[in-house]
C-alpha cells in the first residue's frame, strides 16, 4: 500500500484520506462481487439432476441494490465536494500567499518571482528555469501559463495537478509542509520532450529561501 509518495502539502493528507475511504468502500463491493461470482459458479455448477430456479427478479433486492449504492455515492460526493471546494474554490484562495508564475513551454518550466516590488513583469523579477523554490509552511499561489501547447503542472508529493493552457491563466494554491526536493512532472502530453519536461521544487526554511532569491538575482 506504500505506493503513494509521502504527502508534503497542506491538503495532501485530505486527498489521501478520501482515496483510502473510496478504496475501502469500493474494495468491499469488489470483494462482494468477486466472491459472489466464485461462490455461485462453484455452488450452482451444473450437476446431474440439478434444475435452475425459474426466477425473474426480486423487487425488494433490486430496490436495495439501487438505493444503497446511491446513498454511499451521495456520501462520497459530499465528502469529495468538501475537499474540492477547499482546494479549488476561489474564495478559499489564501490572501498572504507567495505568488509565483510558471510559464510552461516545450519543454521547460519558466519560473518567475515578483521580486521586492511584488509585481510581475518588472525588472526586479527573479527568474529561473525548471527550479521552483518555496518556503515551508507558507501558502504558495502558482499562476500557470503556457507559451505553446497544453502542459500540466504535476507535483505528486503535493498531490497537485493543474493544466497550463495557452491563452488562459490558471491558478492553483497549496502550502508545502515538508522540507525537501520534489519533482515537477508534465502530466499533459506536449510533444516529443514531454517525458523529459522535468522541474524540481525545493522546499526550504524561510530564511534559506530568501537567501536563495537574493543569490539567484545576483547571478542573473
Amino acid at each position: 500500500m506504500g505506493f503513494f509518495p509521502e504527502s508534503a502539502s497542506s491538503f495532501g493528507g485530505e486527498i489521501d484520506r478520501l482515496f483510502w475511504a473510496i478504496f475501502w468502500i469500493t474494495g468491499f463491493f469488489f470483494l462482494l462481487v468477486q466472491a459472489g461470482l466464485l461462490f455461485f459458479v462453484l455452488k450452482y455448477r451444473s450437476r446431474a439432476g440439478r434444475k435452475a430456479s425459474y426466477v425473474h427478479g426480486h423487487t425488494g433486492l433490486e430496490v436495495i441494490w439501487t438505493v444503497v449504492p446511491a446513498l454511499i455515492l451521495l456520501v462520497l460526493t459530499i465528502a469529495s465536494q468538501k475537499v474540492w471546494s477547499e482546494i479549488r474554490s476561489p474564495r478559499r484562495m489564501p490572501k498572504d500567499a507567495l505568488h509565483v508564475e510558471v510559464l510552461a513551454e516545450q519543454f521547460a518550466w519558466n519560473i518567475r518571482y515578483p521580486g521586492p516590488d511584488q509585481r510581475m513583469e518588472t525588472p526586479d523579477d527573479i527568474t529561473t528555469i525548471n527550479e521552483l523554490h518555496l518556503p515551508v509552511n507558507r501558502p504558495a499561489l502558482v499562476s500557470l501559463k503556457s507559451k505553446d501547447v497544453i502542459h500540466s503542472f504535476f507535483v505528486a508529493d503535493f498531490r497537485v495537478k493543474q493544466d497550463a493552457v495557452p491563452g488562459l491563466t490558471t491558478q492553483v494554491w497549496f502550502t508545502p509542509t515538508k522540507l525537501g526536493q520534489y519533482e515537477i512532472r508534465c502530466a499533459e502530453l506536449c510533444g516529443l520532450g514531454h517525458y523529459r519536461m522535468r522541474g524540481q521544487v525545493t522546499v526550504q526554511p524561510r530564511r534559506d529561501f530568501e537567501a536563495w532569491l537574493v543569490e539567484t538575482k545576483a547571478n542573473e
Partner: peptide, 19 residues
C-alpha cells in the same frame, strides 16, 4: 554576457564547474 541557467537540468550542471 548573460549567464546560462544550467541548474535547470542537473545532468547539464554536473558537467560544468563554474558558471
Amino acid at each position: 554576457a548573460a549567464k546560462i541557467k544550467m541548474s535547470a537540468d542537473p545532468v547539464c550542471q554536473q558537467q560544468h564547474t563554474g558558471a
